[in-house]
Amino acid sequence: MGFKLLSKLLVYLTASIMAIASPLAFSVDSSGEYPTVSEIPVGEVRLYQIADGVWSHIATQSFDGAVYPSNGLIVRDGDELLLIDTAWGAKNTAALLAEIEKQIGLPVTRAVSTHFHDDRVGGVDVLRAAGVATYASPSTRRLAEVEGNEIPTHSLEGLSSSGDAVRFGPVELFYPGAAHSTDNLIVYVPSASVLYGGCAIYELSRTSAGNVADADLAEWPTSIERIQQHYPEAQFVIPGHGLPGGLDLLKHTTNVVKAHTNRSVVE
């Protein structure tokens, strides 16, 4: 069995187990497998329904001669939608809004960016022009300005110390501490036991640490421990890039980060 097929099978099995364990909360999309990078042309966006009122959005972007996937989250909030992270750029984010209108038909009224990198804030200006209120932590807003990236308009308070959590509509926002970046936030959907790890969490097929220019490698494993301790009931975990899975993604990420750190020390 090929690795790609095995990865998709694991996603399907995880979703099936969740649907059985929580039949009222989960209505997993039966329309197909989780979209992969090879299936999404740059400039297009796919939506994948995880649970009743919960979707991931998947886009792709060219970077350094390669094409990478990027995940975000959409959560229903009454007759409105909360968006977590842009679709990595203005063109993708405009396509995301169009796809949401086509498939869901509810307005996106608020959006949260989970850290300051372009795959999370690139497209904020498109959201703002569409009347979406954009939010991020003060740290993310400051770092985005320093980096020359787009800056969300509103500040999220109460997320300055490791372990801080605040309720934001249908989700809980959690600051686990520094990891992929010093400002990275985690998003949890309690009604569906869905954990969105953003770039602080890796997919299972990833074996290298990737972009760690703004990471705190020493603190990252401790931050992941905080996530595990705060959300032990999480059933569906979405990484910032690639295929979702279960809580095993947290341990896998820790292993990859520690291996990278150990290699760096040896070198």
Rank of each mutant, 00 (worst) to 15 (best):
F3A: 03
F3L: 09
K4V: 05
L6P: 03
L9T: 12
L10Q: 04
V11I: 06
Y12H: 15
Y12C: 13
L13I: 15
L13C: 05
I17T: 12
A19E: 05
A19R: 03
A19P: 15
I20E: 08
S22G: 09
L24T: 06
A25S: 04
A25F: 15
F26S: 06
F26W: 06
V28S: 04
D29Y: 05
S31T: 04
S38K: 10
G43P: 08
G43V: 04
I50V: 06
D52W: 05
G53K: 08
V54W: 12
W55A: 08
S56I: 01
H57P: 01
I58P: 01
A59F: 02
T60P: 02
Q61L: 05
F63K: 05
D64E: 09
D64Q: 08
P69D: 05
S70N: 04
G72C: 08
V75M: 10
V75F: 04
L82S: 12
L82N: 06
I84H: 02
I84N: 01
D85G: 01
T86E: 00
T86D: 00
T86L: 07
N92M: 14
A94K: 14
A94I: 10
E99Q: 06
E101Y: 01
K102W: 14
G105W: 05
P107A: 11
V108S: 04
T109Q: 02
R110A: 12
R110I: 04
A111D: 11
F116T: 02
D118A: 15
D118I: 15
D119P: 00
R120F: 08
G122V: 04
G122N: 03
D125F: 01
A130W: 09
A133T: 08
A133Y: 00
A136L: 13
S139M: 06
R141F: 05
R141W: 03
R142W: 05
L143V: 07
V146W: 09
N149F: 10
E150T: 01
P152R: 14
T153Y: 15
E157Y: 15
L159Y: 04
S161F: 08
S161L: 05
S161R: 12
S161W: 12
V166C: 13
R167I: 02
F168I: 15
P170G: 11
E172A: 07
E172D: 10
L173V: 12
L173Y: 00
L173R: 03
Y175A: 09
P176W: 01
A179V: 04
A179H: 00
H180W: 01
H180N: 01
S181N: 09
T182G: 11
D183H: 11
S191G: 11
A192P: 14
Y196K: 03
G197W: 01
A200H: 01
A200G: 11
A200R: 05
I201R: 02
I201L: 13
E203L: 00
S205W: 10
G210S: 08
V212W: 13
D214P: 11
A215L: 09
E219Y: 01
W220Q: 03
P221Y: 10
P221S: 11
E225N: 15
E225F: 15
I227P: 01
I227F: 15
Q229A: 13
H230D: 15
Y231A: 08
A234T: 15
Q235Y: 11
V237L: 13
I238E: 11
I238Q: 05
I238C: 12
P239C: 12
H241Y: 02
L243M: 02
P244N: 03
G246H: 06
L249H: 02
K251A: 06
K251W: 03
H252Y: 11
H252L: 11
N255M: 11
V256M: 15
V257C: 06
V257G: 11
K258R: 07
K258N: 08
A259N: 04
A259W: 06
A259E: 06
T261L: 03
T261K: 01
N262Y: 05
R263V: 03
R263W: 04
S264Q: 14
S264V: 10
V266W: 04
E267N: 00
